[in-house]
Design a binder for these strands. Sequence first.
DNA 1: ACGATTTGACCATT
DNA 2: AATGGTCAAATCGT
Length: 370
Amino acid sequence: MENMGDWEKMTLLNELKQGRELTKQLQHQLHSAVSLLSSSSSSSHDQTQEMLIHRIMASYDKALSMLNVEPQAGGCPRRASESPPSLGGSPMSGGDSDRDLNDGSTPRKRKVMQQWKKRVRVAPGTGLEGPLDDGFSWRKYGQKDILGAKYPRGYYRCTHRNVQGCLATKQVQRSDDDPTIFEVTYRGRHTCNQHPAAVISPSLPPENQTDFNASVNATPLQSVQSQHQQNQTGPQDIAFDFREGLAIATQNLDSNNGNHNPSSSMFIFPSTPENIFGVMNSNSNFSSNPDFLSVSTSGTDCFSVPPARLDSFQAGPSFGAPESELAMIVSAVASGNNPQANARSDSDLPLHGMEFANENIAFDSTEFFP
DNA sequence: ACGATTTGACCATT
DNA sequence: AATGGTCAAATCGT
């Protein structure tokens, strides 16, 4: 456990929480099923089920407490506004903006900058090695070989750091396993006056994206651009990812049993025939490249949409559901003149951590991730 | 000339 | 001491 990376720890944590939450759901299902039946005395079979559930819950609680997490009923140990856990490396060391945080007189805890990650897949053969355009302009200020990593890590800061004092930074690390994937860690908020393309940008933490209900008519997917092109980028990328540390969505995640049932989802949101609403957990990521928009959970691609199928795409902070249970809601608006987008019904989707409330539109990840 | 990138050195943290 | 993050001089590209 000690030699676990923070990223792995977070993933393990999320899995455990998810398991616990799903067990709770199962418990509720069983309860409601029992109460629907005649209220004659519960059978020993019911009691056995109840005991098993309690033991499963106890196991999850024990595992969570071993990870120093208070297992709690709500399922969300932290509110979103609280500082995220330290992930992916030690907290900022030596940053010029951080150096002055402690005058040495009082040993106070270094301020932990908000950070969140995304995984970006770059289409192989594009010849583009750099990170995706995310609508902001970045200046590279360092590169470092990281122990155990095949590829060096690039360090970027906002171009407008000096002029406008914007402290946003990002790190780009090419994946060892899949060189077409870049893991991008964003830190700090943009305080500069840059106008990233769409409302949604991976370098904006979700709470900045409050205009969730407004329609976004941006081109959903844009080409990967070089650093130079980024500087004059217009409305471009709608890639998006979720802040660390949010709670786990608790919808039905088991997509491998072929029993995917939209109606069993815990959260159903109002949707129009033109809209798709998805619910994702805190490990979900959006990424895009010229060929598709993809949504993944825990690093596993689970959902992708060819750009031709969508007119716009947006995501924002959760609403209409307890924050403790929902991380994010995703909405995509399908084109009215795009028959493909409305052609299929929602069933047996290979989705992990994502649920559509709209049954008119479905996307099959296997089409794009064979 | 100017801005961006590269890269070795330095510093903080563990 | 090892490692990760940043600085800043040198270099590159336009």
